[in-house]
């Protein structure tokens, strides 16, 4: 599940529960629809309520990075729980400078 809000050019998408290949599809559809609608300067993915993710979560982050960059905005990934840091570090996405 994902909740979005758009305030002052920042679109925040708060993701709840587990991110796997199955769930990533509906999360992606919802975030992309909001991104296209608002064309935000910044898209924030809030991971504070994500309890599990596999590499589908990495694909989700990379895909949103590409999408928001194409629209001239930037991506931030915020509130990553300690338990998810291992896969995030393995993926190398911290080199994109999106982690906060």
């Amino acid at each position: 599940m994902v909740e979005t809000k758009y305030i002052d050019d920042v679109l925040t998408a708060k993701i709840y529960g587990e991110i796997d290949h199955h769930r990533a599809q509906s999360i992606r559809t919802k975030i992309d629809a909001q991104t296209q609608m608002h064309k935000p300067k910044e898209l924030q993915l809030d991971f504070s309520n994500v309890s599990f993710m596999d590499s589908s979560g990495i694909g989700l982050i990379m895909g949103r990075y590409r999408q928001v960059s194409l629209l001239g905005g930037s991506l931030k990934v915020v509130n990553v729980p300690q338990g998810l840091k291992k896969i995030i570090m393995l993926s190398g996405i911290d080199s994109l400078g999106v982690l906060k």
Partner: peptide
């Protein structure tokens, strides 16, 4: 389909 291509790398590492 937005696969990161990390599946086996994760299995090897974890």
């Amino acid at each position: 389909d937005e696969r990161a291509g990390l599946g086996f790398a994760v299995m090897q590492s974890f």
